[in-house]
């Protein structure tokens, strides 16, 4: 088997393992999704005003995504650091870049499901309306932003994994880094939702920014993940 195919097989195996742990424990469905939903409801309590929710809905969707993401990342690395599972993977001689790609893929799948739920909630609770083209743009934004978030989340999650006080450290490290995603994804989603009279076509340059972010941190993460988790 060539090196590339072997790496791809390992990455897929790691992703499948993470997703099957999630499928069996149902933490995303039973805990994180309700948490994200309650954030959306709380935003409505805090900002209840004539039409303001409709206007700020894109930002709220992405803020709720990022807060929930912190919980998901803690969870995906708690699974690894308990019983030294990550060390076991390393001792088995598995390439850390493949672990990074695999964990990012699993995280991306979970985040995407979460974002779909949040956008649906924005439509139902905040009265957001979308055209078909807007919906397409929203989906592309979600896919590209999710890849970037998953790569950065896995990278910094790996850094904080196994350290004392990681619950408090991860938000401090991660939130400043994902600020470009919050800006880009919010603007692109604004265009998709047509908030404040934005045209759908105005969203595509922001998706470009999100793509640059995803490619950059995907590449850097594959290289830097090894030194970060190597204890």
């Amino acid at each position: 088997m060539s090196a590339v195919r072997r790496r791809r097989a390992i990455a897929l195996a790691v992703a499948r393992k993470d997703l099957s742990i999630e499928w069996n424990s149902r933490v995303l469905v039973n805990q994180v999704a309700p948490f994200a939903s309650i954030i959306m409801v709380m935003f409505a309590f805090a900002l209840d005003n004539d039409g303001i929710l409709q206007r700020v809905a894109p930002g709220l969707v992405w803020l709720a995504t990022m807060f929930s993401m912190l919980v998901v990342i803690q969870r995906t690395f708690a699974v690894e650091s308990a019983d030294g599972a990550l060390d076991a993977l390393r001792v088995a001689g598995i390439d850390p870049g493949s672990i990074f790609v695999g964990k990012s893929m699993a995280l991306a799948v979970q985040l995407f499901a979460l974002e779909a739920l949040l956008v649906a909630m924005a439509v139902v609770l905040y009265g957001v309306e979308m055209s078909v083209l807007g919906l397409c743009e929203a989906i592309v934004t979600m896919v590209v932003a999710t890849i970037g978030l998953a790569c950065v989340g896995t990278l910094y999650g790996g850094l904080a994994a196994g350290a004392r006080g990681r619950e408090t450290l991860l938000p401090l490290l991660l939130l400043p880094v994902v600020a470009p995603v919050l800006i880009g994804a919010t603007r692109a989603t604004e265009a998709a939702f047509g908030s404040a009279g934005t045209a759908v076509s105005e969203g595509w340059p922001w998706i470009g920014l999100l793509a640059v972010f995803a490619v950059l941190f995907g590449a850097v993460g594959t290289v830097a993940f090894g030194p970060l988790i190597d204890e």
């Binding site: 990278l155 400043p176 880094v177 470009p180 800006i183 880009g184 920014l209 640059v212 950059l216 850097v220």
Partner: peptide, 15 residues
Amino acid sequence: LAVLEIPLVHFSVVV
């Protein structure tokens, strides 16, 4: 990583 992050944040904030 911060060297990578800071220009990216700066650029996105400028835009």
